[in-house]
Amino acid sequence: MPELPRRVEAQPDTVGRDLGRLVLTIVELLRQLMERQALRRVDAGDLPDEKIEQLGLGLMRLEEAMVELREHFGLEPGDLNIDLGPLGNLLGPEAGSR
């Protein structure tokens, strides 16, 4: 994909923001995947209460960290979404409105 480097060069002032956005988008995807998996485990009912609490705390702090990082780069929640066409939105349809 030749576009990316060319564009980064073309707009040096936004390099940091664009890169931050790209990285944060991937991280946010992973975070959401983890969260969904955790919810599935909760649904399955095979986790002891302490584990659930630990999981929840961890995910909650991760989310707080993501919010800080996002604000650091001046990004909105919707900025971390990418339209994957036939695969839907990277972060689901609701990600932009949260």
């Binding site: 909760v42 929840g56 995910l59 909650m60």
Partner: peptide, 9 residues
């Protein structure tokens, strides 16, 4: 007392 749990729920 259980903020993590309520977050998940």
């Amino acid at each position: 007392d259980r903020p993590g749990t309520s977050y998940l729920l």
